[in-house]
Write a protein that binds this DNA or RNA. Sequence first.
DNA 1: TCTGGGGTCCTAGGACCC
DNA 2: TCTGGGGTCCTAGGACCC
Length: 426
Amino acid sequence: MAAGRILALVDCNTFYASCEKVFVPSLRNRAVVVLSNNDGCVIARSAEAKAMGIPMGKPAFECHELFRRHDVAVFSSNYTLYGDLSARVMKTLARFTPNLEIYSIDEAFLDLTGMPGDVAGYSRHIRETVVRWTGIPVSIGLGPTKTLAKVANKLAKKDPALEGVLDFGTCPDPDALLERVNVEDVWGIGRRYAAMLERHGVTNARQFRDLPRDFVRKRMTVGGLHTLLELRGIPCIDLETIAPAKKSVAASRSFGKPVVHIEEMREALAVYVTRAAERMRAGRLVANGVTVWVQTNTFIAGEPQYANSAFGALPMATAHTAEILTVALQVLDRIFRKGYRYKKAGVMLSGLESFGCRQLSLLEPATLANPKGERLMAVLDKTNARWGRDTLRFAACGIKQDWKMKQAMRSPHYTTSWLELPVVKT
DNA sequence: TCTGGGGTCCTAGGACCC
DNA sequence: TCTGGGGTCCTAGGACCC
């Protein structure tokens, strides 16, 4: 282990809610919540909304009264906007160090080892720059391991006196800090493990850190052991500055209303294949197989339930929407049962390879390779990038799309569509 | 009426081979 | 025909992350 390693975890504060505030000054001090796809449940809350006691994950239909009473601004999720603002934040962070791992849409690890001067002061400078350039406030946790940087970040968010930055490595009493963190808030310990640990009297991060290694290895496998060691300051999880190759690409949605007929299910599948294939081509990937799954609404007691999935191999690795859809529809025929009200369906593309080194068919390369199809996809992607998603699309996706998810309160695509640019009044 | 979506990793167990 | 050990590959299920 390198002596004196210093990692920073930069995490955007209430990211989706902050994104919604960037272009709407009147929301600055107002409670904002963002709903999941289909306007299902609460997935992000601004600080004001948290203070009102609006819980994470609560179904939206149970919150309407609360929203009305507190004049909460409610938004459908707008991933196009969040993705674009995320890219701006990451680009800003990359100016401070080349050793950066983009961990999720709203988090990045930075290696600040060897930075001259005061790392906490430098972190405050990073923080000020990000909010000034992007409008997104962030918190920064510092520590010798990723897990401790995560812990420090959590505490930095909790305590306003810290002004968004906490260095675990230089704090005088680390045990006291760890005791303030619930064990289920430790990175790598989820609900199930937290419940198990609680049965053994372990409720905070300090108690977990001091458990015997064998106990943790046996009950929480090797991942749990890594978490334990990282809390002790021993690095087990590396910084991944180069994103590892994707192994699968999935697209799935809940329906806005139940789907009963296979014709509608085929349309939905066509849309999901379209989305997944787009992402494959953007990453210069091809898939060897496709899994299709369908599911009824498990929340409705007393209604007949059915869920199934099946896999179909593609004749040759491809990212061509129509080639994948052909197989996906055959797979659907195998698992679709009449007489159910379907709530959800999805596709997953697997066996991914990079387009440049894909395995060609040994037997009939000439008939299976499809250069015309590749050119068609290129034109499709280019057109849609210029004129907007689905400007050009397959007829199989349908026209009415009655089953489409609900998104009644979506904000504009402020930064990615010429038609939806914010307007400044003087 | 209304309950998200997209991923990864680890382990156990079965099939199959020598 | 029976026996045992060791290895690999695949899948399903469970855990986690954001």
